[in-house]
Simulated assay, not measured.
Amino acid sequence: MDQGPGRLPGKSAVITGAAFGIGRATAVSFAREGARMVVTDIQGEALLAFADELRETGAEVETVIGDVSVEDDARRMIAAATARFGRLDVLVANAGIIPLGDVQEMTTADWDGVMAIDGRGMFLTCKFGIEAMLPTGGGAIVCLTSISGVAGQKRQAAYGPAKFVATGLAKHLAVEWADRGIRVNAVAPGTISTERVNQMREEPGGPEYLATVEAMHPMGRIGEPAEVASAILFLASDDASFITGAVLPVDGGYLAQ
């Protein structure tokens, strides 16, 4: 494996949900730090365009268009890394959806949809990721949870429990595989300025909702995707070599209240 500059020199990584938001910012960060990547997303056109942008920086990039909740798709995402790079060193299990509503508003379809992507999808990518890491002595997994996966919030009746799945999965897998050289941690973002959040500024009631959310974060603002990507990079790198089972908030102080 070639070694070069950066915090992930020559490391092979898979990043799910990479076309937009936190996943996209993470891929940009990983490319800058020397990683070789498989970037995945269900939105194929946007993913392929983004991969071309990454390649222009000199990064080695493979793409897989697929749905993390579909077992064969999740398996293909991991297999692409071992086929292209011979190994898997880092998995960022980021793909997710965010339905908002209280328990009266949420339907069983809403529940099943978010549990499929944010729950089952994370389980599957971690399962196949661990399988790929074991023959080469281990690796690092970072699961994307949320402040809603650590503490209760209004209008998160389906999304919040799905993110508790992500938090719990990270902790259990950390204990289960620590002695095989696999570290598993989670990042818990607060409200982040992703494409979906920014769309709310143009929706009825959206600006008022975002103003309320911003005020709930002690720093008085929402976060940027690159700020979350920096935390993911830390946990994925050897700088976090003695950290596993941690849930790192990136939330402007929200959970400290």
Rank of each mutant, 00 (worst) to 15 (best):
E105I: 03
A59M: 03
I42W: 06
E33R: 15
G121Y: 02
E131P: 01
E214K: 13
T16Q: 15
D102L: 00
L255K: 00
G223F: 10
S237R: 06
A25E: 01
S241D: 07
P249Y: 13
R75I: 06
P207T: 05
A51E: 01
V184L: 10
I97M: 11
A211I: 06
V175Q: 14
A116E: 07
E33V: 02
G181T: 05
S237Q: 08
G86D: 09
G152A: 08
I182L: 12
A35G: 11
A256K: 01
N198R: 15
A240E: 01
R183G: 07
A95E: 05
V103P: 06
F164A: 12
I98K: 13
F128I: 00
D67T: 03
W177F: 15
R32G: 00
F85P: 07
F30E: 02
L235P: 03
T107F: 12
G10L: 00
R183S: 05
I98W: 15
V39K: 05
E56I: 02
D67Y: 03
F242V: 02
M133A: 05
L8I: 05
I65S: 14
Y254E: 07
P207F: 14
I78M: 04
L134A: 06
A46I: 03
I42Q: 14
G23C: 05
D110P: 02
W177Y: 14
S12Y: 04
V38T: 07
A211V: 04
R120G: 04
I78W: 05
I15S: 12
E56P: 11
G129Y: 07
P9H: 05
A246M: 13
G139A: 09
I22P: 03
G10V: 00
C126A: 09
T167M: 10
T40R: 08
G101F: 10
A256S: 09
P204Y: 12
V175T: 11
L210M: 10
A151M: 12
G101Y: 15
G96S: 06
E45K: 13
P207K: 04
D102Q: 05
P207C: 06
T26F: 01
I117M: 07
L248I: 06
Q43K: 14
G17A: 09
